[in-house]
Nucleic acid binder design. Structure first.
Lengths: 140, 140
DNA sequence: CAAAAACTTGACTATTTTGGTCGGGTATAT
DNA sequence: ATATACCCGACCAAAATAGTCAAGTTTTTG
């Protein structure tokens, strides 16, 4: 079980933004250089962050991205959601026809996976972006 | 982020075994039929469970698999480990040359991912197979 | 003993997901 | 004007996933 790079890079990039955003917009180029993430890939990621109202964009020569919510208010779960990465450990879906494995009843481990999802998602729900930056010296 | 079917089926199959093992070995054929998992796939899974001392096998006509540890003692983390599925949310490794993204320092979000791994793994560490079966009516 | 049930094992494969890149835009500050 | 930076859809190679296949071996029981 692992998180994909898209989600990971998104959190990294936004953490970077949080550190370096002193009112001004932060450009992807800068983030790319500081965090070692491909610029083109970052564009793809920020497209979705923008669509999901995590960031605003500023075009033009001193452009870049700014936060919609402040890092203090921005939940990690919001970020993952923007990238379609909510945790769904299993396939047991509430399909109309069959639940779980084609049986009419829930599979024996169903409740367990539900618990797991809850356990993981609550972690992301309770973390704000600003929490990641505590005790971080800023490296320039 | 999702668990693969191998781990999922392993837990399901072992839960099934726990319900139906009244001293006797449980055959994969029975598990396959009850849980709707491909027999051939189950074989692949149980091969690894056996190699990792989660189950013993009994050959021959009334053969099947039995538990090495009782379901009361068997941790879910043991099962996942047998299938190489310990949680490792990210790539930040302790490589000798570079940590995280090629920088000499840990990436800004490193501690966060460590926390996440810990959070998830502790869930699996604290669950025993027998815990999944509580409040379960046995369906025949 | 023969036959069937059940485990053993490695190799193989189709599909999907991942992790990006490419190319051609558009907007805006200086 | 022009350089910088966002915008966006299409594309693609490689890896992982989710199985299947084939060809066994072992053991019980009729």
């Amino acid at each position: 079980m692992k998180l994909n790079t898209k989600s990971r890079y998104a959190v990294m990039a936004l953490a970077d933004m949080a550190i370096f955003s002193d009112k001004k917009a932060v450009s992807l180029r800068d983030i790319s250089l500081r965090q070692g993430i491909s610029l083109l890939y970052l564009e793809q990621i920020f497209l979705r962050l923008k669509k999901n109202k995590i960031v605003n964009s500023v075009r033009g020569i001193n452009g870049g991205y700014t936060f919609v919510k402040s890092p203090k208010e921005l939940k990690i779960s919001d970020i993952l959601l923007a990238l379609d990465q909510k945790v769904k450990t299993i396939g047991c879906k509430k399909d109309s026809k069959k639940s779980c494995n084609g049986k009419s009843t829930k599979c024996i481990t169903h409740n367990f996976w539900d618990e797991l999802d809850l356990h993981i998602n609550s972690f992301f729900e309770n973390k704000r972006l600003s929490d990641l930056l505590k005790n971080k010296e800023v490296r320039l």
